[in-house]
Amino acid sequence: MDRPLSRSMPGRAVHADGQVAVARSLPEESPVALVFDGTTQAVMMATPGDIADFAVGFALSEGIISSIAEIEAFEEVSHDRGIEARLWLRADRSKRLLARRRAMAGPVGCGLCGIESLDQALRPLPTVDATTVLSRLDVARATDALSRLQPLRDQTRATHAAGFLQPGKGVVVAREDVGRHNALDKLIGALAQAGTDPATGAFVLTSRLSVELVQKCAFAGCPALIAASAPTSTALRLADEAGITVAAFSRDGGFDLYAHPERVLSGVADVA
Score class of each variant (00 low, 15 high):
T132I: 06
G57L: 00
F249Y: 11
R263G: 12
A140D: 07
L265Q: 11
D17E: 13
Q215V: 08
F203V: 05
S147A: 15
V173R: 08
A224P: 03
L112D: 09
A272Q: 13
V77D: 01
G189H: 03
G195R: 04
K186P: 01
D2E: 02
D129G: 02
G111F: 08
R100W: 09
V14H: 10
A105R: 15
P10L: 01
Q166W: 01
V139D: 11
L257G: 06
M44P: 00
L122W: 06
C222H: 11
I83D: 08
S147N: 14
L149E: 05
F249V: 04
R100I: 01
L60K: 07
I65V: 15
A21M: 07
T234G: 07
G201D: 00
T143R: 12
K95Q: 10
S135L: 03
C217N: 13
A235N: 01
A192V: 03
P10S: 07
D17N: 08
M44Q: 13
K216M: 12
T196Y: 00
S117V: 09
L97S: 06
V171F: 10
I65A: 05
L187A: 11
D270I: 02
P231G: 05
L26V: 15
A190Q: 08
A13M: 15
A55W: 05
D80Y: 03
A161F: 04
L225C: 09
V204N: 12
A55G: 12
S66D: 14
R237L: 14
V172M: 12
E241Q: 15
D50T: 00
S25A: 13
R90T: 15
S67D: 14
V268N: 07
L257D: 08
S147L: 06
T232D: 09
V172L: 06
D240A: 15
C217F: 03
R141G: 03
L5S: 12
A105Y: 06
T127I: 10
L60H: 05
R90G: 05
D129N: 10
L97H: 07
V214K: 06
R102D: 14
T40D: 00
P27V: 07
A259N: 00
R251D: 08
P107A: 09
G201K: 04
R90C: 12
F164C: 01
F164Y: 07
I115Q: 14
I65E: 04
Q193V: 07
A13R: 15
